[in-house]
Design a protein around this nucleic acid. Structure first.
Lengths: 189, 189
DNA sequence: GTCTATAGCGGGATAGAC
DNA sequence: GTCTATCCCGCTATAGAC
């Protein structure tokens, strides 16, 4: 029973990491099984619907992990502006540290599958909505009106996503740092 | 000579469209040749280095097309804030109209290849820089200080890119419309 | 310049022993 | 539950006739 869960979990975590760095189409089942140490046979035992199911569960797993991180960073500062800026600085340092082998949690797969795979698209949708909800809660807690909090949350999430793509493409943390500088404008009352 | 150019051009334009909607890894050479009406033999005649070269030229072609559109929209309004909002409204209408089969010009391929293909990565980098330059010029022309103009340009580009990904993932133009609402905050002096 | 045929590889998925 | 062997397919790339 614990073996079952362990193998399953390894497959999900390995897939999550590969999806983040390479995307859905570039990530093969062979690579997943080799890296996770699990045999291909057991992959289809644990995920009878194959690659799509595995990807959905990996995205869902990523959602849980990133949401916990996001919450903890946002909670580290009482002020909304400072909290968002702190988050962007954490991301900027990630870019500087990992540079080439960095990925945005679900950016690539969300982009790739938006028009071609409904199940994965919905899973990614759930991640974005969860992130936005987290920002929203923070802003409401800081006194923003509910409607305004939601709008700012959506655009903060978009700004981060777009800035990170540019960071990856340019191999430079400048875009996310620039975004951090402009956050006060977006968050002003 | 004109045949040569015509076939070449068709291949580039077809590839550009497919890359936009499906990304690099999901787009096959067979699909490109079939859709463009060109035979596979002639593909390798025109692009001896194969898929990578074709993709680079397609990205470069997309750069020219999008840059002309961007410039024309930004020029349609004298005021910087109104010009950017106009652009976002054009994009929102595109999302509403095409919904499923919409793509961001180079978003997917930029994301996919950032960590795995230097040539394509650089080509995408060139597109983002060109777009940012266009915004920058507009803002400088509207009286912003050069440094501030550049910073805002970078973040506007990021906001658009991120909002569009969310639009595609959610199949809804709301995120880009929300961004439009918040543009005045980013652009305020 | 154009086209066909095919090589060579890796992908996802399956069958069946253990 | 695990593992191997294998099927079938589509991909990129190439060879060579025309």
């Amino acid at each position: 029973m614990s073996t079952r869960n362990h193998t399953r979990q390894m497959l999900i975590e390995t897939t999550a990491k590969l999806l983040q760095n390479q995307g859905y189409n570039a990530t093969g089942l062979n690579q997943i099984t080799q890296l996770s140490g699990a045999p291909k046979g057991s992959l289809y035992y644990h995920f009878p619907e194959g690659k799509e199911q595995l990807a959905c569960e990996a995205v869902s797993h990523t959602k849980n992990v990133t949401l916990a991180n996001l919450r903890s960073v946002l909670d580290s500062k009482a002020d909304a502006t400072q909290a968002v800026q702190e988050l962007l600085m954490v991301l900027a340092e990630q870019v500087d540290r990992e540079n080439a082998e960095l990925g945005i949690p679900i950016g690539v797969i969300a982009h790739e599958t938006a028009g071609s795979n409904e199940n994965i698209r919905k899973a990614c949708c759930g991640v974005y909505n969860a992130w936005i909800g987290e920002f929203e809660n923070k802003f409401v807690a800081c006194g923003y009106a509910p409607e305004e909090a939601k709008e700012i949350a959506v655009s903060i999430n978009a700004l981060i996503e777009g800035s990170m793509i540019m960071c990856l493409t340019q191999r430079d943390s400048a875009p996310i740092r620039t975004a951090a500088k402009l956050v006060p404008r977006l968050l002003q009352p």
